[in-house]
Design a protein around this nucleic acid. Structure first.
Lengths: 208, 208
DNA sequence: CAGACAGTTGGCCCAAAGGCCAATATGCCC
DNA sequence: GGGCATATTGGCCTTTGGGCCAACTGTCTG
């Protein structure tokens, strides 16, 4: 079933549930890891690794929804599936609004959980390429000198070298040099490519 | 409470519920319209007008979730709030996955419904400007001749006039003319602006 | 048929972008 | 102090983009 590494982080204060789910997932080829508390999970969690979290809603100390929020604040878009014994509609709605991928009720039907994980894997696969590209763009951006970065923002605003020079208090020739080096470092050969790249990386042109 | 026109489309097979909700909303300044069946609503619905739908989940013939799907297929991003008497978690989850803004249980607390509507209004207000711009871009696109549109796609790919000419089987001079007229019609003065505009309108450069 | 529109092309000229080589100035690290 | 990165500027030349005027062709419509 599973080929690429994909870890399922199981978090539930009931060791029996953990064990049962872990066995189910492991038997389907997943790398299942279990945690009996939200803290344990957060401490050991590496947002960079592929996978998804399966969280119990009701847990002492930090509950499932709080853990979900902590994950979201961590910046990583770690997908979350909730599993609950005594959940109610308002809770499920809150979880879904907060971005949960699914919200299942105990006893969990094996098929439901496997399907949910499967859908997440598909979505993650689609997002993977995009994230890689974003990372590549960011690392290129990091190689720009402050001046080059500044020129970049003016270029994606569609300004002429002449105008940029005026804005930065220098002459056109200087801008041409920065611009050329910036294009070289960013690995693009046209303003169109540069704009698209900057757009995805969230770089915005200066207001003025 | 309400200033700009914002219609609430209430759909419920229970006339009593409709009346109660309509009175509540009307007293808060909303333009509430009631429908006792999904069909009635769909027939009278204009996706272009601002507002949101408050749907009962359980209705004969076409139920709330089906109606939500019908609205989504209609292309309009009409926000939907569900209200249900005997809902369960799986149903609420399905509704939220399908894009519902909220899912409330009867008896509906007045505050909950008003808050939900209020959040929708805020979000719609933010989306409004973007939609207006998208519409403006599309109407400009509609004024382009087929050739100009084709040139546009090549320009946003960052191709040189010379290359575009080769691809389209003509000469550079011709491309310059189309390009100039296209830029004029699109109301932009730089490739950067054009790329951003096209990006938002979903125009993609040709593969080759 | 006349006229409008789309598409095409040429010539002319200017503005803008960008490459190549060289040079200067500053600040920082070893 | 020497080396290195950054920023700056100049000159020179080529390519590219783009505006203006003019002209020709084909299609479609009143």
């Amino acid at each position: 079933m599973s080929t690429a590494p994909f870890t399922i982080y199981l978090v539930d204060d009931d060791a029996g549930v953990l064990k049962a789910l872990a066995r189910l997932l492991t038997s389907h080829g997943y790398d299942a890891r279990t945690f009996t508390s939200a803290r344990d999970f957060l401490d050991a969690h590496d947002p960079a690794l592929p996978g998804c979290a399966v969280l119990d809603v009701a847990m002492p100390d930090l509950d499932g929804l709080q853990l979900q929020q902590a994950l979201a604040e961590g910046g990583a878009g770690r997908p979350v599936i909730f599993v609950t014994g005594r959940g109610d509609i308002p809770t499920s709605v809150r979880a879904m609004k907060a971005g949960a991928a699914d919200f299942l009720t105990k006893p969990v039907k094996e098929e439901d959980l496997l399907d949910a994980i499967s859908r997440i894997r598909e979505r993650e696969a689609l997002l993977h390429h995009e994230r890689q590209e974003l990372q590549a763009v960011r690392s290129r951006l990091a190689t720009l000198t402050p001046r080059e970065h500044e020129v970049l923002t003016h270029v994606i605003a569609g300004r002429l070298n002449k105008q940029i020079a005026f804005d930065l208090g220098t002459v056109e020739k200087t801008i041409k040099v920065h611009r050329g080096r910036m294009m070289e470092k960013m690995g693009v050969r046209s303003v169109a490519e540069l704009v698209r790249m900057a757009e995805r990386a969230g770089i915005r042109p200066p207001e003025t």
